[in-house]
Write a protein that binds this DNA or RNA. Structure first.
Lengths: 109, 109
DNA sequence: TTCTTTAATCGTAAAAATGCGATAAAGGTT
DNA sequence: AACCTTTATCGCATTTTTACGATTAAAGAA
């Protein structure tokens, strides 16, 4: 059906899955890496950085925004995209928690 | 076109995106959480734990296996799924690196 | 006002993801 | 052998994702 049964899982599971999904494309990883390092956050600069068309990059930005990982503020004719501190922290802690939940060499087979 | 241009991105970007994508569904988060905590790793037990059909769970397990995050070993008539220590470590470090690349309060707008 | 720049959205196409029932395959059990 | 259990795969329908060109909308410059 192509429809995820979100209501069958916990809010926490859905939340971390949403953030992971947002990071689940190399273009969006590239965007995040760029925003993390670069001083610039102008949409056009991101478009120039990626090997994809303007409309495609815009869509990727939309998905990252939808997950809350980034936010965009209008700056004259252009838009400035930045990593959202609060959500970024939430994501970091969620993933750290997930990875911490498994103690290595605890395999049963 | 529905086809990710993987060749336009670095191997590292594609790798972390693949792992993130594998974690980008609540059912697969639930599976990982179960494997991380539970002593059992029998496929049937995972199926019973999830609100999805056997075939659907099998598909989710396949995707996690495809990303390398888990591995399955045949045990008589059943299959034992476990988190793959090596890949799990790689994933943890990759995500930690991604999150560490951004210093908070460094927004330019 | 007119033109340019910038970015979002629309429309379209192709491919992948989600989900399930049915079936197949493989290993035990009787 | 016949049967049961367990899990993977197939077939199908639906939805979502990826990607791009074209268009729109908004802001600034001429």
């Amino acid at each position: 059906m192509g429809l995820t049964k979100a209501d069958k899982f916990t809010a926490t599971q859905n939340r971390i899955a949403l953030m992971a999904k947002a990071l689940g494309h190399p273009a969006r990883i590239a965007i995040i890496e760029y925003l993390a390092i670069s001083k610039s956050c102008v949409c056009g600069d991101i478009v120039n950085e990626l090997p994809l068309s303007q409309s495609t990059v815009s869509q990727h930005l939309k998905e990252l925004k939808n997950a809350g990982l980034i936010k965009g503020t209008i700056e004259g004719p252009s838009v400035c995209y930045c990593i959202d501190d609060r959500v970024w922290k939430e994501a970091r802690e969620s993933f750290a928690g997930l990875f911490a939940s498994y103690i290595e060499d605890n395999n049963c087979c």
